[in-house]
């Protein structure tokens, strides 16, 4: 599903954000990406949905080679991924349902199927009653659920979540996390960057820890052949 091999990433201003990062994520996995602020978590996320390209090394996501991906292919990759952020990124002048429908319209989905698909994902995240509500009328946790619903509406194989609970209180955090677990139980790969070590401890998922741009710990390496990871 996802493969990073000897990835370096430096930003145009010279900042070296990633150094020789390698790991693989297989079908059905739920992976935590942890580490201090500035460790390079978001940078890895950006490589996964092709907002950034690696400076060196190889990034493969769902059959696409991000390193050499042509600009016209980026939208294709993104339609197979769901992306969720700490700040929800909803459009304020559209209702919950319209925000989700937007993601379908943008991909040229057939108009008569949109409403049904929107309702299906809204029900999945437990917000079918909030379809006509605007983001300002929703709590943070509800807004994040709408964002997750939008990420799910194209039936992605992979869901990338960059600190999805970073702006939420404890109760909302638990709710959103449970939702992500349910989605993962349905077979969707989930890569979640987080600061919340309680959350990491609470669930027994694979954890990749970053420090200053390098992977310093990968719980899967315990049971995996080291050679395979670094290959």
């Amino acid at each position: 599903m996802i493969r990073l091999a000897h990835v370096d990433k430096s930003y145009p201003n010279g900042a070296l954000a990633l150094k020789d990062v390698s790991f693989r994520i297989g079908n059905g996995e739920f992976v935590f990406l942890t580490g201090h602020s500035g460790a390079g978590k978001s940078t890895i996320m950006k490589l996964l949905f092709a907002e950034q390209r690696p400076t060196h090394g190889e990034v493969r996501v769902s059959g696409y080679d991000v390193t050499t991906l042509r600009p016209v292919e980026i939208p294709k990759l993104r339609r197979r991924l769901g992306v969720v952020f700490q700040d929800f990124r909803l459009l304020e002048d559209r209702t919950a349902a319209e925000n989700i429908a937007f993601a379908l319209e943008v991909t040229g989905a057939r108009g008569d199927t949109i409403a049904a698909r929107v309702m299906r994902v809204l029900t999945q995240v437990g917000l079918s009653a909030k379809a006509p509500a605007y983001p300002r009328e929703l709590s943070g946790g509800e807004q994040q659920r709408v964002a997750i619903a939008r990420a799910l509406v194209n039936d992605p194989a992979i869901l990338v979540a960059d600190e999805p609970t970073g702006n939420l209180d404890e109760r909302a955090t638990r709710g959103v996390f449970q939702l992500l677990r349910d989605i993962n139980a349905g077979g969707t790969v989930i890569v979640m960057a987080t600061h919340d070590l309680d959350l990491v401890r609470q669930a027994n998922y694979r954890t990749i820890e970053m420090r200053e741009g390098s992977v310093v710990y990968d719980s899967a390496a315990d049971d995996l052949d080291e050679a395979e990871v670094s290959r």
Binding site: F49, V72, P75, R89, F102, V106
Partner: peptide, 16 residues
């Protein structure tokens, strides 16, 4: 700009 960045995020083509 925000709307456009979200469009790109959910896979809108540049022509769209």
């Amino acid at each position: 700009a925000r709307e456009i960045s979200i469009m790109r995020l959910v896979g809108a083509t540049n022509w769209f």
